[in-house]
């Protein structure tokens, strides 16, 4: 019985010794791999985490403007609704979303992420479809008409100075300036065309 117990004990000790030695080998392997390939491993992990969507969402009520520096303290996320566009003369009342993907534009006015926000003192680019319920009537807007932008952090009124019809390739016509608050609002033109319109109807409005 004693001999059987001591046999088991010896076997257990031998196995534990093997596991400890194996652990040392694993530690050595991991150290060598980390030493030789740490930057590549970090890059691979970062890449995976970059393509992982962040599940935390910003609360829109936290979007605030720093009036002293004319800059938002926090920004809405892509796809977040943060305001309303109102053109009383055309009966337009549309939600404004940050971002300008086609899926965003199905819901309302898109905001080009390359442009500034209302109140920041720079150029703002908004766009929406030319369909009924959106900006179908935009080409009827008159110079002097008011465009109201109500955001979660403040309300801003713009007056239309000019309208233009441009080709879709004329990127210079939507020039972003950092020290001049111009609201550029555009839609596809002509509004009753079939297929992909090649022109845009653009309004240029300055802050009141």
């Amino acid at each position: 019985m004693r001999s059987h117990y001591s046999k088991k004990n010896t076997l257990l000790k031998a196995t534990i010794k093997n596991i400890i030695v194996a652990f040392v080998y694993v530690a050595i392997f991991v150290s060598i791999i980390t030493l030789l390939f740490s930057s590549k491993i970090s890059q691979a992990i970062s890449l995976i985490n970059i393509v992982s969507s962040n599940t935390s969402k910003e609360v829109l009520s936290e979007v605030k403007i720093d009036l002293e520096h004319n800059k938002l303290e926090t920004y809405p996320g892509i796809g977040d609704r943060y305001g309303t566009l109102i053109i009383e003369s055309l009966g337009v009342n549309l939600p404004i979303y940050y971002g300008d993907s086609l899926s965003i534009l199905r819901n309302g006015v898109g905001h080009s992420s390359f442009s500034y926000f209302p109140g920041e003192g720079g150029s703002i680019v908004y766009m929406a479809h030319n369909t009924r319920g959106f900006l179908r009537k935009l080409p009827e807007i008159q110079v002097g008409a008011k465009i109201q932008i109500n955001t979660v952090y403040g309300n801003y009124t713009y007056t239309v100075d000019e309208t233009k019809i441009i080709h879709q390739s004329e990127e210079d016509a939507l020039y972003i300036q950092k020290d001049k608050e111009i609201l550029m609002l555009y839609t596809c033109y002509p509004v009753n065309s079939i297929g992909h319109a090649t022109h845009r109807f653009v309004t240029y409005s300055s802050l009141d």
């Binding site: 080998y25 694993v26 392997f29 995976i48 985490n49 992982s52």
Partner: peptide, 23 residues
């Protein structure tokens, strides 16, 4: 035992550093 340990190391790395579920 060593090979087993290295195989499980991959799971440990995945759990501790990668957001695989949210790709």
């Amino acid at each position: 035992f060593s090979t087993g340990g290295l195989c499980i190391a991959l799971k440990i790395v995945e759990v501790s550093t990668m957001r695989v579920q949210n790709i």
